[in-house]
Amino acid sequence: MPLTEKDGLIQWTRKSRSERIREHLIWVGAAFLFVLAARYISGQTIWIFVLDAPRQAQDFISRMFPPDVRYFNRAIGALWDTINIAVFGTLIAIVFSIPIAILAAKNTTPHPTLRAMALAVIVGSRSVNSLIWALLIVQITGPGLFAGVLAIGIRSVGMISKLLYESIEEINREPIEATLATGASRAQTFVYAYIPQLMPIFVGITVYRWEINIRESTIIGIVGGGGIGFLLNSAINRLAWNQAVVILITILATVIVAEWVSAKVRAKVT
């Protein structure tokens, strides 16, 4: 009630009293939380190192120049590996996501227990970053490209399955009814009514995930997953900033190209 009467005059305020009090309380609470967080972080920080930061930054920026242009050859070689990690990670994910998404969607799952299991797989895969997955997998397969592919793949399974099963649940029911009404079996209905409706969405999801996987695979080498991230890590460890900057530029270009390709393909399929 922003209108109140006082001394015979009707007064207008933007918000009522209780609204204002509630809003103030939210702000005070948020500010309090922020101060707590800031204090904690500052307690954990060695400020001498922080004060040193500008000098450090200056140091490694000066070391970046001139960039070691010949290093592009190495970077491009590693880039090929990186792209392969993204492509095969996505492929593995596709193979597993389709059945998992079918089990996880309310309208296609054969049994609620299977649905719960599929959802558990999706949740587990999605909640853990691919870098952490890589950390685990490297222990099993040893460092290298294969570990990178598996890490990217495992994480993507959850991501693709989630988007896919949500689209299955939102599918247009009418064509499915129509197909069932002709006497088609469940499997036939899947081929004739579900797949054609889902195909463009599926391609979109996959390409989008591939784009993200390109980004992820550029850094998966930092924890032993192979590819260009491995070079970056070793360049930084050797303080070879003139090489690191070359790698960063290569990554930047790759990410931009991947983004462009992904946007083009997605615009085309819809």
């Binding site: 954990q44 920080t45 922080v50 980004r215 992820e216 850094i219 960063l248 930047l252």
Partner: peptide, 21 residues
């Protein structure tokens, strides 16, 4: 936006030292 969060983290750790800051 083009810098991956992990790459950013590496750069900041080098500049500021380990830790939550």
């Amino acid at each position: 936006r083009s810098l991956h969060v992990v790459v950013l983290a590496i750069l900041f750790v080098i500049m500021l030292g380990f830790g939550p800051f």
